[in-house]
Design a protein around this nucleic acid. Structure first.
Lengths: 236, 236
DNA sequence: ACAGTAATTATCCAACGGGTTAATTTGTCC
DNA sequence: GGACAAATTAACCCGTTGGATAATTACTGT
């Protein structure tokens, strides 16, 4: 598939162009939503003529769906890279939360795209066989982790993996997706480093406390709590 | 303020008109977002001439801000109606979650409006002294409930009330706001009664397990769990 | 009854925005 | 070196949309 037949000067580069268009479109849709996105702006950002969008991808809606599918594709790929099998159940859960958290922080457009798609009542997603076939490996990962945890006594009870998956996503997603309004309401910047670290501590502590029945220090000593080892939370 | 000076036939009713406009605008903005909303559609839905919007409220942006402020106002009012003082701490938390959950279910436009505002990076909210002055009573409520719980031994640790507030909102908000995409991903309707009841059970169990250190039945017996007393969850 | 004001309607318009048509350029293959 | 297709550009089209102007109607106090 390596199209570098001749690495020489090529004014023309279809695949490169397509990628630039989709990247520009992703930014545009993430920033302005579907209705707020401007086709001309996407073209400009991609350094392309407007006609190119229609030539390489399709109309605005097709463009949007392509972006959405790409976004799901990307997270699924990264999710698959996370192996929790060899970790202690509590560590596995912590890692799972850490990954989700950091992925959302690294890919804010993903959050925006999901919100946009939900505003559209998943109209496009429903038509996408592609996305529907991309199952998240997390649900199965969680199931085995929870079962192991229950078996070895780390966890008190067997939670429904789907519910837990949604809950972990929820804790991360909402905080980041709504950080703008929440920051105004609480009168402080929820995105600054310390606030983010504190949030991650809280989420991990909350979920682990629920699973193990044992509260960790971070969960309790709120407010006057230490962010010491917080830096250790990076994803795979 | 009762403007019913003469209850007789009035073709004209400014305040009623304003209310109809704001209600129509709320639906429109919630359904289509800020950019997707159409001024003409709002007028039509309100049974008004388009000019009336500008006369009674202002331009599109003003209209949107007015709707947003109204939405915050409404939830704050209902929040204040919830008194948790006389309840056992665990019951108080359960009630808090139940209220949040049911409020979001009863007011789906609120979720959509918040998402829209966050897409706009809270641009409008920042300019609204009105909303900034409307503090949620929940943070203080949670603080005292948690302190009581710790004091009487119900709770193991003192969580940061702000974090807990955000977490509870997150668990409810994300599930409902993203139900469209999640339903597609999981291939089942997350909004049907049984699914909603199961979700509420899970959220209550998760948070209470974390706070008390004792897992409840509902948290453990996932999937094959009973929705028996689920009907009891109605808000204040 | 009438003047004055508040509320409402009818109509218009310029800018915008998605999408298209048709011409032009660039590379490829013989 | 020219034919053919792929890629790119320039220019245009036309329905939509937020907003404005100005005329009209209903209510109020006198």
């Amino acid at each position: 598939m390596v199209k570098a037949k001749r690495i020489l000067k090529w004014q023309r580069d279809p695949e490169g162009m397509r990628i630039r268009i989709l990247e520009a479109a992703k930014q545009e849709f993430a920033t302005h939503g579907l209705a707020g996105a401007r086709v001309d702006r996407i073209a400009a950002k991609a350094g392309a003529n407007k006609r190119m969008l229609y030539y390489h991808v399709g109309k605005k809606d097709d463009l949007y769906l392509a972006v959405l599918e790409g976004a799901y594709e990307q997270i699924r790929v990264e999710e698959r890279g996370l192996d929790l099998e060899h970790l202690d159940p509590p560590e596995a859960i912590e890692r799972l939360i850490g990954f989700t958290w950091n992925y959302f922080i690294r890919n804010p457009e993903f959050l925006a795209l999901l919100n946009t798609e939900n505003l559209a009542k998943a109209r496009h997603l429903k038509r996408s066989t592609k996305v529907k076939s991309m199952h998240s490996p997390f649900v199965e990962m969680i199931r085995t982790v929870v079962m192991r945890g229950v078996a070895n006594g780390d966890f008190q009870v067997a939670v429904d993996p789907v519910q837990l998956y949604i809950s972990i996503a929820a804790l991360c997603f909402f905080y980041l997706s709504n950080s703008a309004t929440l920051s105004v309401i609480f009168g402080r910047d929820l995105l600054k480093k310390e606030a983010r670290d504190e949030r991650l501590d809280h989420m991990v502590a909350l979920v682990l406390a629920a699973l193990t029945g044992k509260s960790t220090a971070a969960f309790g000593n709120s407010k006057a709590l230490k962010h010491r080892a917080a830096a250790a939370h990076s994803d795979a």
